[in-house]
Design a protein around this nucleic acid. Structure first.
Lengths: 132, 132
DNA sequence: ATACCTTATTCCAAGAATTGAATACAGTAT
DNA sequence: ATACTGTATTCAATTCTTGGAATAAGGTAT
């Protein structure tokens, strides 16, 4: 199927650019299971609400996430499973790299690689966290 | 007020940014089978040599490709298979998207704009193309 | 209506990415 | 040495991205 490869390449580049920011990667990771509310992302990632919204706009415009209004709040979800496949491939590569570094320069005190570094702050009041 | 982002996420973002340019995506695609010489990339992609070299530097610094000097020429290769896995996941997503668009708005006309300004293939004198 | 909560958008300055042009560097010849 | 080929780097101008502040917009109450 040797077609307008360039159209696909252009779109692939746009997708990669949308993914290529640490905060946006974290957002996508948080959406992994069933999506998340903006409020939740703001709380978990510890960034100003406007900034989270800006990053969500980038992800929306790249077609990587979809927004569903639920009253006052908005639930964001990964738009299709292929998006997560890209994210996973990226994380596998990055993780492999860190493992190599770790072997070379000594172990680091860290838990699960994919959800490492942060913990929920427990003061999120999004619809989902309220139910717990 | 920056929240610490874990190392893997940062590295994944750096990798994604290195990939997120059409020319660099095309380069990676050309390296798919056994790598390619700079000369070949310049010829096939129809861009100035300096520009190709600049993009190769970005890919090198992200650890996505490796360079091997062979006399006057330099052979570039994908550094590890996981890199191609990322590229493939990206292309699958982009391709899926194009298919949807095409179904929605009908087939594209033949004279594709994206091939308009490109130099013709087949006059590459890199070590590999010379053997054919 | 007012007040409040959640999310989106606009504006703008600082910083980063991209590119062509020129140039430097490395290797192979004569 | 000089000339030539292939690749890398530097520089400067332009363009794109990012993030904070302020504010707008959408929704739910009282």
């Amino acid at each position: 199927m040797k077609q307008p490869v360039d159209v696909v390449t252009q779109d692939a580049a746009r997708i990669a650019r949308a993914i290529s920011h640490p905060v946006r990667l974290q957002i996508l990771n948080e959406l992994r299971e069933g999506g998340a509310y903006v409020m939740h992302l703001t709380s978990v990632l510890g960034r100003p609400q406007a900034n989270i919204s800006q990053h969500l706009m980038v992800l929306r415009e790249a077609g990587l996430v979809t927004a569903i209004r639920e009253g006052m709040t908005v639930l964001y979800q990964i738009s299709e499973p292929e998006v997560m496949a890209v994210l996973d491939a990226l994380l596998i590569l990055a993780e492999k790299r860190r493992t190599r570094q770790q072997i070379a320069s000594g172990p680091l005190p860290e838990g699960d690689v994919h959800h490492a570094g942060r913990r929920r702050r427990g003061k999120c009041r999004c619809p989902r966290c309220r139910q717990l």
